[in-house]
Nucleic acid binder design. Sequence first.
RNA 1: GCGAGUGUGGCGAAAUUGGCAUACGCGUAAGACUUAGGAUCUUAUGUCCUCGACGUGCAGGUUCAAGUCCUGUCACUCGCACCA
Length: 808
Amino acid sequence: MDMHAIEKKWQKYWEENKLNEFDKSKTDKKFYCLEMFSYPSGAKLHMGHWYNFGLADCYARYKKMKGYAVFQPMGFDAFGLPAENYAIKTGIHPQDSTLKNIETMENQLRHIGAMFDWTAEIKTCMPDYYKWTQWMFLRLYEKGLAYRKEAPVNWCPSCNTVLANEQAAGGVCERCGSPVVKKNLTQWFFKITAYAEELLSGLDGLDWPEKTKLMQKNWIGKSYGAEITFAAESGDEFKVFTTRADTIFGVSYVVLAPEHPLVAKLTTPDREKDVKAYVEATAKTNEIDRLSSDREKTGVFIGAYAVSPADGRKIPIYAADYVLFSYGTGAVMGVPAHDERDFAFASKYGLPITQVITDKEGNATLPFTDDGYLVNSGEFDGLFGDDARKAIVKKLEDGGKASFKVNYRLRDWLISRQRYWGAPIPVIHCPHCGDVAVPDEDLPVLLPYDVEFKPDGKSPLAKHEGFMHCKCPKCGGDAQRDPDTLDTFVCSSWYYLRYPDAHNDKAPFDPEIINKMLPVDKYVGGAEHACMHLLYARFFTKALRDMGYLNFDEPFTSLTHQGVILGPDGNKMSKSKGNVVSPDPYVEEYGADVLRLYLMFGFNYVDGGPWNDDGIKSVAKFLDRVERLFYKITAMPDENADTYGADEKELDFVLNNTIKSVDNDMNTLSYNTAIARLMELTNALNKYDNLPVKNTVLMKEAMKRMVLLLAPCAPHFSEELWSQLGNKSSVFLADYPTFDEKKLVKDEVEYAVQINSRMKAKIVLSKSLSKEDIEKAALADADVIAALEGKPVKKVIVIVNRLINIIA
RNA sequence: GCGAGUGUGGCGAAAUUGGCAUACGCGUAAGACUUAGGAUCUUAUGUCCUCGACGUGCAGGUUCAAGUCCUGUCACUCGCACCA
């Protein structure tokens, strides 16, 4: 078959007949199948895109044939750093390179033969989209979910920009790998922490990979504990957060984070020099060092003492950088006997180590960090774990010195970027009125084209007079625009809401439409977004729901992460390693269907693996075989329709079993086994074809269903064969084949017979036999009798339809 | 360090509730057809071998029966990484 010709032919047909477009009259049977949209990079589409988009399309087409009105849109996450970096390097404007890249990618994407509904295409860098991204910001701002504050932020000295916590994971810049340093800037934040609890509890009901849910859970990091108030001798009070209130009698010092405001206030004059030096040194330390748990603990005594609320002991106060100012209260109590970090710290600075917890036997090596029984704890001695914690906190609570407290590790989402290529933050800073939201009717705040990209730590927009200067919407006086742009993750946090109403120019979407079309029924994309995009999108959905725009709680009901296709060398594909595999030469040589089929067959979808084209020919051969068989069978006259013996029954069994298996495999995205079953059906048809007398009516029926089963996987090929069968409408409008349970029932079953759990014989028995008869038949078998050698039978285990185990 | 996952032929990989390990394919070998074969078809193909034994990273355990369950251990991958 001329693959290229039929690709063109049917892609044109599908487009002209609007087969890829969602039928808006069928929202009651909607199936929203979405792949994570991609960034329009200068590099061409690689194998991973095909693996993601092409194979998700197989699922979408399968669902369509199962009777759903499938909506599968495609778009581009078009703002972002790479285009701007490229502009700095080459002088080519981000808008020009991005739009050009999009055009190239659109063309490449069409080669996949996916049923993308291009009428709903989104490009996040276009004003008709980012207008609504800005609108989203304003709604969150109104709700108090967007706020501005000065904060130490992750600063990448190489990219000259602020990074989100998630983009600075591990203390290095996600993009360039440079060590991240801290810098104080006034930044915009989204208050994602307001939803910490629901983001956590909502995970339970989601059909998502367990690993991803666990990652989000850990990222949110809920922990139950208590805040306990310590009083300094000066009278100043401060709280520490602890999950181990049961260890409070073992406190031998307390630590304040170096950034803690009380450090300066409480430091005694004789310690001032040392403390100041330490605090300054901490500020200079970059994240990579500060966050390393292997690092030696350091700290400095500030000269002041506090009083333990539990027993009134006087304990020294330290400042140490192993305590994070941004978590809990920024202060902890040091219990060296029962915390590894405190143990290391106390050992170094010669602080007392008092054991207050012990195990069942009364002996424990320090530091002992498990739950245990209290000792040296006055009235609480003998209590265990949770009971001890509750009793102690209750007692302190009565004295106003403690309270139960839940903490989350999740931080608010820093969304300001000192970059050009993003959606401008729609806020005006007025010398009289302060921060003023841009009125909705003035949206979008357009991104100017003529800017200076050269990075110098200032937003390119800040240097653009025409952009910056404006009138305050409130007082009409001279004012300045916010020079920053929004993190691109803001754009991608709501795009799935835009697709179903992509051309709405009155609102980001019509809630009536969106509430029918959402949530997304199947979301397919890489696992690397587990704690960023997927969390942010959930936050947006919940926030918009609470504002009354949406009536659902979660954006993505079911999520699948496709595996990663690695380079042939087993490494992640990258330009620098030179191991990027392009789909283009394979599409050129074998066609889109063969490549789709090979990607389905050669890998477990959720695992991926190193690229290797050894098997691609075999898949091409498989389609050739199907095609040859197809033409051979369709050319046969209808004969022997009434012939239905063992061979026909066997063929019918394989046919029905294939339908059952493939249906199930497609539904669970077990593509490799689905293709294996289709190969088996082909083999069975070939085998049957070699018989002298053939029921050609049965063969034709089998072939017809084969074409239907193959259609979601090899759409052009199958559409062609379908039309050759004389069908006037698309194969994707045909019903997915169903199987007949009766055809799956065999008259006879082969049993494996084991003697003392060892395989000794195989016997074929009628399906209708009772357990007793099966046992009798097995014991009467000549091979079995021989293998038993006259030994008495003690016990016989019969597993119906499978095996018989004789214990002798 | 903590958390999660993976480990099966020469290779990619299969294996409902524990029930014939290695489906499907690649590769390899032999044969058929052919002027020819890098096409097509057929057969064989876990290892060692004579019966038979041994085989799912390794060592144990539970069971009539373990790739699957339990304990320990090694290797690799991913995530988190001083969160008190």
